[in-house]
Design a binder for these strands. Structure first.
Lengths: 220, 220
DNA sequence: ACAGAAATGGAAGCCTATTCTCCACTTGGA
DNA sequence: TCCAAGTGGAGAATAGGCTTCCATTTCTGT
């Protein structure tokens, strides 16, 4: 290998590299992995050429960015495993993990799809799975969750609720918590009263806005 | 108006028109409103020109197709309103409406977004809303549903579960029923036992396939 | 202060995909 | 038989993405 000696970047280059990483992080978070490199460059105040000089292609930029975001979810899962109440552990994990996904659209996309292009991210995900399994198993053993619940249901619920969050994101950024509340209530083996809703419902105008906004986004 | 006399189409033209409508219906159902007119023409075995001769643009083709599909949902809602048990009425409506949406991706897209381009469809949707409101109000009056539930939650739940259905569609087309089951259990004001799940969970391999497949679809 | 290596910007080339137009040709049916 | 109605599909127009290239600018060590 001729590139084995890593010579440090020139100071301005290092600054630009960081700028690109930061900007890409923000744009991906806001609008998903679809954002073009042209746009990232523009927002970062550099030329496209500069982006390509640092990151051979889009995939590698993404890898560089999201490795540690996945670690965050893993940490969340582990933290939940420490919570004494087995039900609280599960509920907290789902809620916290959804919060992260809602705050970062690209993270959600990476979490829910597999691609051979992102080996390192793939690996991050495979570390999370067993922890979630443990959280679920414990809750089930304690009789805190319906016992026909499967780990795949947890994944699907996250996808479903995450999508609802996207839907209302611009208009009522907390509305997804209502759906989560309903879903969590549905996970309990028995229940006397509904859990109080953590957010107000959408009014007619908000529903209108949401649908109009969604229509426009689709059209793009 | 010079076009007031509607002269009938030549027989071959009428046959082609129907072919286009049928094919478009199938393709839209399968892959959503994103399908191109070129593709519709190819599948219908006609030239693009023929499509444009019959339908000035894509919007009008869509309008022509989906007016009666919306009527179907309206009929479903009205039918549910006839059901004696107020809880069953709500549950059946949500389930049946989701079944229609799962079977037709384009229908789902139209149902959840607003666009000035589709006035007639817009109008169809506005007829459905009050019926759903009535179904919900009745269930609430009977104490069959948690009373902090709002009509907007029903919409959001449909969006969420419909999306989950899309996610697993290729691999486990019935999996969404599990999520619906959980959500419906979450809507009840109290509950001693979980409702039995209506479908088996996904196994590891199915989860893998789902995620891989989803990753590929996104990339397009 | 200067040489020269490193880094830069962004126009340009090259994709792929879409919607929609146009017209030489074919076909149905009075 | 004849001609208005109908047809197919090449291609214009538009849009948007990724990637390359190189004349120019900026840094850094001496």
């Amino acid at each position: 290998m001729t590139t084995s000696v890593e010579r440090p970047l020139r100071r301005d280059a290092e600054r630009n590299r960081q700028r690109i990483l930061d900007t890409a992080g923000e744009l991906f978070a806001e609008r998903g992995l679809g954002v073009s490199l042209d746009e990232i460059a523009r927002h970062a105040g550099v030329g496209v050429g500069t982006v390509y000089r640092r990151f051979p292609d889009k995939e590698q930029l993404i890898d560089a960015l999201f490795e540690d975001r996945l670690a965050e979810i893993l940490a969340t899962a582990n933290a939940s495993l420490e919570i004494e109440d087995p039900w609280e552990a599960l509920a907290q994990f789902v809620e916290r993990s959804l919060e992260l996904q809602v705050a970062d659209r690209a993270l959600k996309e990476l979490l829910l799809s597999t691609s051979t292009a992102h080996a390192r991210i793939e690996q991050g995900r495979s570390q999370i799975q067993p922890v979630v399994e443990a959280i679920l198993a414990r809750a089930q053993a304690a009789g805190a969750v319906r016992d026909d619940l499967d780990i795949s249901d947890v994944l699907l619920l996250q996808h479903a609720i995450g999508e609802a969050a996207d839907y209302t994101h611009e208009v009522a950024p907390e509305a997804w918590r209502r759906i989560l509340c309903i879903a969590l209530d549905g996970l309990r083996p028995d229940r006397r009263r509904p859990t109080p809703m953590p957010a107000p419902p959408l009014d007619d105008e908000q529903v209108d806005c949401t649908m109009r906004e969604w229509g426009q986004r689709r059209r793009r």
